[in-house]
Design a protein around this nucleic acid. Structure first.
Lengths: 216, 216
DNA sequence: CGCTCGCGGCTGTGATCACAGTCGCGCCAT
DNA sequence: ATGGCGCGACTGTGATCACAGCCGCGAGCG
């Protein structure tokens, strides 16, 4: 018996480590829109050479999480209003479907966990912690959608989140909120009641809510 | 004035050339599910070294168009029935929305083009040409959805097509069809009439139709 | 004082190389 | 004859290197 060089679940290769690191950073809005990145800088930061750094960056570019100029320079994208509207519509479409599929499988333990996350959101919101809010909000949604048992849909959904990451940071950063999102309570209530139309409406409202603030 | 070293629209870098080449091959169902690929083989075939070949392959893996074993071996994926159902549901969601957005912008020239493509489909179908059928069918849908002016949604949609590519080939390959898809006529008719509910139903039916054949 | 040109450093790209893991085929023992 | 074992060829990974293009800053000129 020898040591296994590979942790079975995650972090197998160097480029994957870089990919995950950059991905969560973008997803949580820890990078402002328009910020520039360099391959050598990323490699230095993660302790790898340029090759895995380039692979991770190219993958993120392919997913729309980063944008690349014609000369190959990489930066986080600054989204146009039309694109934001489009991505919000995609979120609404996919997340409503995911919630709907999760509904029949949602038992009490899941609802308790969602409520715990929602209370945690109230805490970080009162502390003006934009990154913490985004992370907790995504965790709320992901916890619910995991129950849908639809990995392809969830992956698509997370790709959309990824594209909206830096913009959401800018949005919630300049927003002064002191109350948790009201629609989360509606989502939990609809889950408890087994009310599918109500759940679809609540999720759609929660997703679309962020878009409206941007029009101001 | 000097020559521009870069064609503005496409084929800028070597890895992009490889990516596009493999992508269209997978999309059109020219590779059977489970077929193995090697980086050196791809590089040799496209006249590049391993580096761009690896980048193209990793991107396709990230998009779900190829699957990678734990040891890094690459092959086109063999989809489970649950995953096919999921991807079909995603197609229905996104394509119905795209068609709905394209409807108000659809003028006569577009409808004529769709009908021309549909007649072409009738030709290739009578010739038992599975790859030609898939390609023409995708062209029909893409031509319509391009009018929606929603690039992010169209990109998501094409990613789903990409994942279904090899499976669709296997599906239509063992299927003996001699008639063009009936729902295309309904789509064109709904477009002509400006009938949005009818269009949504027709697109949903056309997309879901392929799934039902798989259950047999 | 302001504009422009040029150069140096820095950036991404692609090829090559060294290495570790893996798969498969043939050989040998039973 | 058949099963197990070991070796060899092959595969992906990551580092390094050479190269071409771009950006920005500073000097020089009008």
């Amino acid at each position: 018996m020898q040591v296994q060089p590979r942790i079975p679940d995650s972090a197998q290769s160097a480029h994957d480590k870089v990919y995950r690191g950059l991905r969560t950073r973008i997803l949580h809005g820890q990078i402002a829109p328009g910020a520039a990145l360099t391959l050598r800088g990323i490699g230095r930061e993660f302790g790898v050479s340029m090759t895995p750094a380039r692979e991770a960056v190219q993958r993120l570019v392919a997913e729309g999480a980063l944008s690349m100029s014609s000369s190959g320079r990489v930066a986080t994208p600054e989204l146009s209003n039309e694109r934001i509207e489009e991505l919000a519509a995609l979120r609404a479409l996919i997340e409503v479907e995911l919630a709907s599929r999760a509904l029949p499988r949602a038992h009490m333990a899941l609802i308790d966990r969602l409520q715990a996350i929602d209370h945690h959101i109230a805490d970080v919101v009162s502390n003006r912690d934009a990154v913490g809010y985004i992370r907790a909000n995504l965790e709320f949604h992901r916890t619910l959608y995991l129950r849908a048992q639809a990995p392809a849909m969830l992956a698509m959904c997370e790709t959309v989140w990824l594209q909206l990451g830096p913009t959401m940071r800018a949005l919630y950063g300049r927003l002064r909120r002191t109350e948790p999102p009201q629609y989360h309570r509606l989502i939990v209530a609809a889950l408890k009641a087994g009310d599918e139309p109500g759940l679809r409406l609540a999720v759609r409202s929660d997703v679309t809510q962020g878009l409206r603030m941007l029009a101001s």
